[in-house]
Nucleic acid binder design. Structure first.
Length: 252
DNA sequence: CACACGTGGGT
DNA sequence: TACCCAAGTGT
């Protein structure tokens, strides 16, 4: 849930989710439709699909217990470099570099003297690894500290260097907080995008009672009919929707 | 490596 | 009001 989504928005969703499906085997037994509905408006609904798949995989391959090994974690649906190591470090206490968007920004400033991080890269893991304390517990605290510093002090918009514990050693602050430019790619415009169309279709399918609904009742007034149909097709291709003749619904 | 992929709060 | 930004991943 935390992938690309603010913590404060996740927390209530997480609590409701865990109340309903407290363990992987319990979640694995749920239907895709129920999982997508429970995901509600958290965004990136493919994550709900992946989380459900991961629960099925954990149940089948690991006896219902989330694995500790990073490679086993990486093999699960929707688990990438960040999440795999976050689980291994924060749930199991092992020593790995955990690099999220906050950590990347902290490293860019404190170590590289840049105002903004470079585009995400595996090098980030290498750099974090080179800074990690030798002890497991210290390494976990270092990982969490970097993330937390980026989330609360070394923020994207208005960094609070006055209260920063790294103020004495930060390369960017020492250089006078120069504007070093931003090599990151700009986020695509949402208004009028295919993503917006997908979001609108999926919202309709989530709210549809009873399901399924006739295909020709799906956003008949959408400004771009081709875009709407593209959205429907891509949702079906992703496994987020299911069509049966002239009817469509969340997957059974 | 670039790009697609949601949604809503903050400035 | 228009942006910016968010505990990323898969292709």
């Amino acid at each position: 849930m935390l992938q690309q989504t603010p913590v404060t928005r996740v927390i209530p969703h997480l609590e409701a989710w865990l109340d309903r499906w407290p363990t992987p085997p319990v979640m694995a037994a749920a239907s895709t439709a129920d999982v997508v509905r429970q995901w509600a408006n958290l965004g990136y609904p493919r994550r709900a699909l992946w989380l459900h798949r991961a629960a099925v995989e954990v149940t089948a391959r690991h006896g219902g217990v989330v694995p500790r090994d990073v490679d086993a974690l990486l093999a699960l649906s929707g688990i990438g470099d960040y999440t795999a190591r976050a689980v291994a470090v924060f749930a199991y206490g092992d020593r790995h570099p955990v690099v999220d968007t906050n950590t990347r920004r902290v490293l860019a400033r404190a170590v590289e003297g840049r105002a903004q991080p470079s585009p995400p890269s595996r090098r980030d893991l290498t750099l974090m690894e080179s800074l990690l304390p030798a002890d497991d517990v210290d390494a976990a605290a270092f990982n969490a500290g970097a993330m937390e510093l980026g989330a609360t002090v070394c923020t994207a918009r208005s960094p609070r260097c006055e209260i920063c514990p790294l103020a004495g050693t930060c390369a960017w602050l020492a250089a006078g907080r120069p504007d070093t430019g931003d090599a990151r790619r700009r986020q695509a415009t949402y208004e009028g995008s295919d993503r917006q169309a997908r979001g609108a279709v999926l919202r309709l399918l989530r709210d549809a009672t009873p399901a399924p609904v006739p295909l020709d009742t799906v956003l008949p007034d959408w400004p771009d009919a081709q875009q709407r149909d593209r959205a429907i097709d891509s949702l079906i291709a992703d496994g987020l929707a299911e069509a049966d003749g002239e009817w469509i619904s969340l997957p059974r």
